[in-house]
Design a protein around this nucleic acid. Sequence first.
DNA 1: CATGGGATTGACT
DNA 2: GTCAATCCCATGC
Length: 197
Amino acid sequence: MNRAFYERGVVDVARDLVGCVLRHGDTAGAIVETEAYHETEPACHAFVGLTARTRVLFGPPARAYVYRSYGIHALFNAVCEDEGVGAAVLIRAVEPLEGIELMRQRRGLVRAEDLCSGPGKLAQALGIELDLNGSDLLGGPISIEAPRPGWEAPELLVGPRVGITKAAELPWRFCAAGSRFISRPRPLNPQPGIRPL
DNA sequence: CATGGGATTGACT
DNA sequence: GTCAATCCCATGC
């Protein structure tokens, strides 16, 4: 993907990232679930303004925002929109494509459906840790590529974001319909409808 | 400087 | 279904 891809509205980027290939080292997977976060709504870390934590979110687009969640897991986001605007797409699940044995070692699991079916799981499986926070997605260690040739764009399920208490009504979660690799809870309604910022 | 709250996961009842 | 683990950092005194 190029810089202009990430410079657009974060909800559009979240939708368009479904199907793209997330790669780090010898591991890669097709993105099947994303969520958008924007500084104007309180579920976004950038809502509090520019701090040490949100520095990367407010920086230029096409960078990785990686933070620790619940003291245990690393969560990976792609920074979007213009520099000075805090917005990012959380990658919530990928379908394993390459390096599956390495993913199994890192996760201590066998079933492919369990390797990357959640934001903390996929970061562990792909070996993404906090040291990659702020790294460039164009030419850096993590990259996101256009969907593979022959990859068929699925119907998208749109619904509320997972695990948040504020701005929970916004339908900013996007899932590839029918994928066995998305996280729980499974989205309920295949409803269209994107609320503008 | 002390405190509290998570964009989660896996184990257990 | 419930619940604890555990780190970073924002906030408030």
